[in-house]
Design a protein around this nucleic acid. Structure first.
Lengths: 220, 220
DNA sequence: CTGGATCCATGATGATACTG
DNA sequence: CAGTATCATCATGGATCCAG
């Protein structure tokens, strides 16, 4: 096993935290689990560039640290990884990094740089929050490249959930159907080709108003 | 030079941020600059365990990234490093890590683990905030191992500043004189041997009440 | 097919010593 | 005081392979 037990040797809570989540890739694994439980290959797909060895190692370390739970059921092939409550408490830190990255480390997509729906949605809702938003609840259902996502606001904070099939008990305000690339074009360039938005007129208008804020934030 | 230009290749603000501050030691350098500008050797002392080579490399990368500013004056030996506004914007992330570390990654001091006054004060004020505090402004002057620190609250957020000589225009509510080890003993074990606290009675009582919260937080 | 493990190359970090 | 230089070690990346 020989788990990475490198420490900083500081009696300091920041150093203690970084001993658990400061390794390369760790916070990105947590980022992708914040939108819901995933399998090894789901994570491999989102974490483009990670090697299976490193992912396996990180999941093991995060499990040891009580941040990730491994769900293996006898007779089931799939292994699901999910955040523990302690792992979910890292949400504000990931959001903070997203906020800072949007403010100070923005870069347009590089050639050949893969774009994942979840990462796009995270940036988008972060930008809405950064721009002030409108402090109203919202419930937006996205169907991108045949996968479902839910972006919702309680009027205060936004969150993104993956694999959220529409729920009859809590219908979305708007439903957006597109490819991830088409949604990116809408958000960054205002081009709505290939994007279908349904919902009540006012809700759709509000969606357009709020989603338009990302270009402004990054252009500043 | 050959600066570390490793990227994640994700079109994602979190990954963009981690490309700049995700390397080992980077956020600890930022942690120590958040309390004020420092020299190379000041940082070496606080970052126990870092090698001069790594510190030099990190400072160069953070300077390139616009997070740290290097202040060299001709004819002066000292080089001062300070955070830029973009660097100061990382404060909430460091505070978030401190909060999480206090909650989920606490460990009592290991044998031989050095304890730095700044790190102790950061944990202490973080714990006060975690425990709820009392949302009153405060201004506490510490003189620990012959160095000055100021912990202050605007009633909402706490901050720590190093090398803050007492300011006649804004006198502190309480003044605490001790060694770092003695203050740690007060905070963690309630032992006030070797700690001198001066100020108005009510302010001193409040200090004792608030500083007593850390043991409770970590014991939970 | 998913969920990894293994081997090797490379690059980042650590330890120690030394210098302008 | 503010770093560099050198060498050793460890973590990560890339490719391939394997078991259920």
């Amino acid at each position: 096993m020989t788990r990475n037990a490198r420490t900083y040797g500081h009696f300091c809570a920041v150093a203690r935290a970084l001993e658990r989540v400061g390794d390369r890739w760790s916070l990105l694994v947590i980022r992708d689990l914040l939108t819901g439980a995933k399998r090894f290959t789901d994570l491999m797909e989102r974490l483009g560039g990670i090697t299976p060895k490193t992912l396996s190692q990180r999941l093991g370390e995060l499990d040891d640290a009580g941040i990730v739970e491994t769900d293996r059921e006898p007779g089931r092939r799939e292994v699901w990884y999910r955040l523990t409550p302690a792992g979910a408490d890292l949400g504000p830190i990931v959001d903070g990094l997203s906020w800072w990255g949007l403010r100070h480390a923005w870069r347009w997509p590089q050639p050949g740089e893969p774009l994942h729906a979840e990462h796009l949605l995270r940036s988008a809702v972060q930008a809405i929050g950064l721009a002030g938003g409108d402090h109203q609840p919202a419930r937006w259902h996205f169907r991108l490249d045949s996968a479902d996502y839910l972006a919702e606001s309680d009027g205060h904070e936004w969150s993104v959930t993956a694999s959220a099939a529409p729920d009859a008990d809590a219908p979305p305000d708007v439903t957006v159907t597109a490819t991830t690339a088409a949604l990116a074009a809408l958000i960054f360039a205002g081009a709505d080709t290939g994007v279908t938005i349904t919902g009540e007129l006012r809700a759709v208008q509000r969606f357009h108003r709020l989603i338009g804020t990302l270009a402004g934030v990054t252009g500043a």
